[in-house]
Nucleic acid binder design. Structure first.
Length: 866
DNA sequence: GCAAGGTC
């Protein structure tokens, strides 16, 4: 049987290019998680059947196991030694399943992932999913090395298959583990420390990361230069002359002086001379080179400085242009075109453009220029237009970006710009002056990129030795000025220079520091740090400046490069690097008060923030509602914080108290046009197993239906079951038969409801079909327990016989029995317990622990004591 | 709720 070969690319578009190149366009395509292209051809001298598919970037990402996910109970320090798990980054895409299915029956695997470290790492992710193993001869898994998807490059790579490089893949594993552990440990610690103390930080999370923090550092460094800047007065001498009827201002060779008296002296010397002598005339042919190919960071810089698009926005536009086929892949470091690049057809596509069509025609007719040498990073070709577009096809913003990409591309194959530069030198009173003129002789690429044009500046004709009368000598008084805030474009340059982030992640880091409220984008896309941003960086600077310096990233990169090059063992490097960060973490925690002193000066303590809203169930005093991110209630007496759901506002709810804990209920009003409301108890909301409802709530709110409410499955505040419509008032009202604690519906066991006692952890089963319980306000005459009503769903219970209410005592079987039997002859609440068991009303906290479900046996999951 | 890196 012909061998079957599975080939996997990093993204669908590459899979398509590979299949087209290898099959000569004769393949069939099956749609799936990602498309599969099939064809027959030759493989290592044999007739073979090929399948080409792709992943969508990394298949897996790393995280901590669930036991380390609770911020309240996990010491961030423990994270450095914690195990880590790899799980599918996008489980819904089912990439793992897809690869495993496609690999069935395939004897060979060819990896066409991008040729960088991340690509090498994805190779091993693919190998793991495919289940294809190396045979004894080690010849079943192959790596294709390619830097362009042009047909001849693909065929060449296919003829020169190599083995994947495990060391490079392990270097990425190391980076993932280090970034995760360091970032999460510092983030959790500083978030909890400062959020627990200050009310007006206005940040949901105070994050730390080896890329985002140095990025912020650059912005704050410039801010500090500005705020600490001391202006200085300076003076400069500018003689004026009239030549051929033109008034001309001359520049002083000394530029400026910071001493007024000396400047005055020179002014007098020059003025007393009355004439200037032309000492020299220098004329030089100058050349301004055409640009090299466009890579991502250069595109982002222009997008920010000239088009006014932030990097995130620019990448979104570029992504869309790419998926629609208008431009080539927009994430690349390379500025050099591959040798196989077909300039003629790329230019040909632009022939009919009304704006630059003529330029293109001229280039094709006169012979276009070979582009300047650039950098070949071995990833993707520079960003170029792929097909012609008009403004109507793209919309305003995308059009402006497309237009720039086209102009830049045409610029790279246009002639250089030539001009002559004339410098005329003068002397008076032994002081030297000059003026400069420029004349463009050939516009070259600047005609298509007019913003790069060389300014034309005409000078009158001078002759050497000529003497000219001085009209006046100005003594200009100026003052040095601070630099402006860091522009986004400058920041991108700094990040690139210092190796912070990659072409794809630079926009994400910049976006992060904006979203975390560390910087704000002001006019001209300049980044102004907020009080929070500057306080953080100043804090790191006074505890451990390494934490916010760009070197922290280069250190990690340099360490993992040892792994990539096979010079050091992956495990040892990770241990070594984490050990150092752990020491830094320990020191940071120990010295956090130094940073706190800066926070104290800048922010208000929780007690001074917010306004009084609802009563605390513990001390019965009013708590303060802090509306800044993250919204929360703060009890100054108990010094406790109770977090509230995001994206909405809070009001007092009918002055009702939660029957479980006495905390006054609040009404949450969701933001948005619907303005849905639901009541919640601040204490329950922050207590397991209800803790985390916010996550679900958020997930539902953002769900694909985009709807909220009963039909859309909005949970009630107590119960995360999507279809539950319980309200607090109708539940949690009966006494626990074991210990007299309060029973609440156990959401964990939904949809088969049980009652759960939060003190002794016992679970009381409800009959199937029960969907609401409420109190009767009556007590059982025998055991004094609350008598409850159980409401059944008529359709699901065969026992209801049309009657929906069943009344019984939760504890006392006899009474329950008789009551229910009177109606239906059936007991619902039988738990196999003897009469009167646990009848004592005295509190017996902790009793019965272990009898409940394992879910509650873990002490970390217990409720706090009431 | 947390990092950074792929990609859509």
């Amino acid at each position: 049987m012909a061998p079957r070969v599975l080939m996997v690319a990093e993204k669908p578009s590459i899979a398509l290019s590979i299949a087209s190149a290898l099959s000569g366009g004769r393949m069939s395509t099956r749609r799936g998680s990602t498309d599969v292209h099939e064809f027959d051809g030759m493989f290592r001298g044999l007739h073979a059947h090929f399948k080409v598919t792709s992943v969508i970037g990394h298949i897996f990402s790393v995280d901590f196991p669930p036991t380390y996910q609770n911020w309240e109970v996990t010491d961030p320090m423990d994270l450095f030694q914690a195990p880590i798990l790899k799980s599918e980054s996008n489980p819904k895409a089912h990439i793992r399943r897809h690869l495993s299915q496609e690999a069935k029956g395939c004897g060979y695997l060819v990896l066409w992932l991008d040729c960088d470290r991340e690509g090498e790492n994805i190779c091993y992710e693919v190998i793991e999913c495919s289940g294809i193993h190396e045979n004894e001869a080690g010849r079943r898994i192959y790596r294709a090395r390619f830097s362009s998807v042009a047909e001849k490059d693909i065929l060449k790579a296919m003829d020169n298959l190599v083995a994947p490089n495990k060391d490079e893949a392990l270097a990425v594993d190391a980076r993932q583990e280090i970034d995760l552990k360091v970032g999460v440990a510092f983030t959790r610690f500083q978030t909890r420390y400062f959020q627990g103390k200050y009310g007006n930080l206005d940040s949901r999370v105070i994050s730390y990361g080896p890329c985002q923090t140095p990025t912020l550092g650059f912005c704050v460094q410039r801010y500090l230069q500005i705020t600490t800047f001391k202006p200085e007065k300076f003076w400069s001498l500018n003689p004026y002359i009239i030549k051929d009827g033109y008034e001309l201002r001359l520049e002083w060779d000394r530029n400026k002086l910071f001493d007024y008296d000396v400047a005055m002296m020179f002014q007098k010397l020059v003025s007393d001379d009355h004439t200037l002598k032309v000492t020299d005339i220098l004329t030089k042919e100058e050349c301004k080179s055409r640009p090299s190919g466009l890579n991502t960071v250069n595109m982002l810089k222009v997008a920010s400085s000239a088009l006014g698009f932030g990097p995130q926005m620019a990448m979104q536009l570029a992504e869309r242009l790419y998926t629609q086929g208008f431009i080539s892949y927009p994430r690349t470091e390379s500025t050099a075109y591959p040798s196989s690049f077909d300039f003629r057809s790329a230019l040909g596509a632009q022939l009919n453009n009304p704006i630059w069509g003529n330029d293109v025609r001229a280039l094709l007719a006169d012979g276009f220029h070979k582009p300047r040498h650039g950098l070949d990073a071995g990833d993707h070709p520079p960003i170029t237009p792929m097909r012609s577009a008009t403004e109507d096809m793209l919309g305003d913003d995308a059009w402006r970006l497309y237009q720039y990409i086209c102009q830049h591309f045409i610029g790279t194959v246009s002639p250089d710009c030539h001009y002559t530069r004339t410098r005329v030198e003068f002397a008076a009173g032994r002081e030297l002056f000059h003026c400069v003129g420029q004349h463009v002789t050939a516009k070259g690429f600047t005609s298509i990129m007019p913003w790069m044009a060389v300014g034309e500046k005409n000078l009158p004709q001078f002759t050497k030795g000529e003497k000219i009368n001085i009209l006046k000598v100005d003594l200009y008084e100026g003052s040095t000025s601070p630099p402006d805030y860091l522009s986004e474009s400058e920041l991108i340059s700094l990040m690139e220079k210092n190796g912070i982030g990659t072409d794809a992640s630079i926009p994400v880091h910049i976006n992060n520091i904006c979203e975390r409220n560390y910087v704000q984008v002001s006019s001209g896309r300049r980044l102004v740090p907020t009080a929070l941003g500057t306080t953080l960086i100043r804090g790191y600077q006074c505890i451990d400046p390494d934490l916010c310096l760009p070197d922290i990233r280069s250190f990690i990169e340099q360490q993992i490069t040892l792994i990539a090059k096979g010079k050091a063992d992956h495990i040892h490097v990770v241990q070594h690097v984490l050990q150092q960060f752990k020491q830094k973490y320990t020191y940071f925690v120990k010295k956090i008060e130094n940073m706190d002193a800066l926070f104290e000066a800048q922010f208000s303590p929780l007690a001074d923030s917010g306004r009084l809203l609802s009563k605390c169930g513990k001390c019965t005093r009013y708590m303060k509602y802090i509306s800044t991110q993250p919204p929360r209630l703060y009890c100054a007496t108990c010094e406790e914080v109770y977090y509230l759901p995001q994206n909405g506002t809070i009001k007092l709810y009918k002055e009702l108290a939660c029957p479980l804990d006495g905390f006054e209920l609040v009404l949450f009003l969701m933001a948005g046009p619907d303005g849905k409301t639901f009541p919640l108890c601040p204490y329950c909301y922050n207590s397991p197993p209800f803790e985390g409802i916010d996550k679900l709530f958020g997930a539902l709110k953002l769900g694909s239906s985009g709807k909220i409410g009963k039909g859309a499955g909005m949970p009630c505040f107590l119960c995360p079951h999507p279809t539950c419509q319980h309200s607090l008032i109708s539940q949690g009202v009966c006494a626990c038969p074991e210990c007299s604690g309060t029973l609440v519906l156990d959401p964990v066991s939904a949809p088969k409801w049980r009652l759960y006692c939060n003190i002794c952890n016992c679970l009381v089963s409800l009959p199937q079909g029960a969907h609401r319980i409420s109190t009767t306000g009556k007590r059982c005459p025998e055991c004094d327990s609350t008598i409850i009503e159980v409401d059944f769903n008529k359709r699901t219970t065969p026992l209801s016989n049309g009657a929906t209410l069943h009344v019984g005592c939760i504890l006392c079987d006899e009474l329950l029995h008789s009551l229910v039997e009177m109606k239906h002859g059936k007991s619902f609440f039988r738990r196999g317990r003897g009469r009167g068991r646990g009848r004592g009303r005295a509190s017996s906290r902790g009793r019965g622990r272990g009898r409940g479900r394992s879910k509650y046996e873990d002490p970390k999951m217990s409720f706090r004591d009431f």
